[in-house]
Amino acid sequence: MKKFIIKSIKFLFVSVFIFYSKPFYFLYNDKYQRIVKSKDVYLAIKKSFNQNNKKIIILGDSVPFNIFGEKEFENVYSLASNGAIGVIGQYLVFYNYLKSGNLPDEVFLIYSPFSFVVNLDNVFTYNFFVKPFYNDYFIKSISPLAKTQVLKLPFVSLSREPYVLTSDWRPDFKSKHLNSYNFISPISLQYLERLKIICQKNKIKFNIIAGPQRQSNKKEIEKFNLLEYKNNKAEEELNFMMSNLKYYPDSIFRDKVHLKKHIAKDFISFMLKEMNTSRNRNTF
C-alpha cells in the first residue's frame, strides 16, 4: 500500500504539473482569449484599447456581432460582443474605448429587447462577465450594486485561478432571478444612465436600436412592462427603440433572437438604415 500511495503521489505531482502547464502557457500568450466561449467579449475588450478615432461606434449583443462580425468599415467601429455581459459590460468596453484616447460622434447600442433583463445573475455571467471584467483593471468602474450581485455567484474568487480563467469551466448554479422586473434589470438601468451621461459629457450622440425581431416574439415583447425604465435618463432612447421594432418571418432565425448565419450578413444595410433613422430623430 505504501508503495502504491508514494507512486500515486508522484503521478499526481507530474499530472498537476502537466495540467497547469497549459493554463500558464495560455495565460502567457493570452491564447485562451481566442478559444474560450466568451472569445467575442475578449475581442471587444481588445478592440476597445485601439486608438482609431472612428466616428460611429456600435455596442451590442450577439445579434449585431453576427451581422457586423469583424468587418472593417470606414467610419463605423463595432465593439459588439454578447448580451450576457449586460449593459454594464457594454459600458465598460465603451468607457475603455474613450479612455484609450478616442472620441466618436455617435454611439449605437444595438440590443435585443430580451437582453436588458440581464442582471449578472445567470449561468453565463461567470464566463462572460466575471472572467473578462471582474479584475483589477475594470473593478473601479463597477458599481457597488453590480459588485454585490457578482459576489452572490459561487466561486467568484476562483475566477482568476489560471485553469478556471483559461477554460470554459464555470460553477453550476440555479439563477435566483428576482421577478420584480420582466424587461429591464436594476443593473441595466443603472448602466444605461451611465452610458447616457458619459455620452453627454463627451458630446457624443447616444442611440439605442434593436436588430431584426422574430415575428413570433411579438406578443411576448408587447407584454414587456415599459414603465420599468420610466424616469431613466435613457428613457427617450429606449422608447424610440421599442416603438421602432421591425418584425421578420421566423424562417430566417436560427433561434429565439439570432438570424441564420448566412442571412445575418445581408442585414448590414438594414442596420445602417435603422441607425440612420435613429440619428434623424429630433432630440440629442
Binding site: 507530474v14 499530472s15 502537466i18 497549459k22
Partner: peptide, 11 residues
C-alpha cells in the same frame, strides 16, 4: 508513454 497519455488528456 504514461506521460504522453496524461499530456493528451489534459492538453
Amino acid at each position: 508513454f504514461y506521460g504522453l497519455i496524461i499530456c493528451a488528456v489534459f492538453w
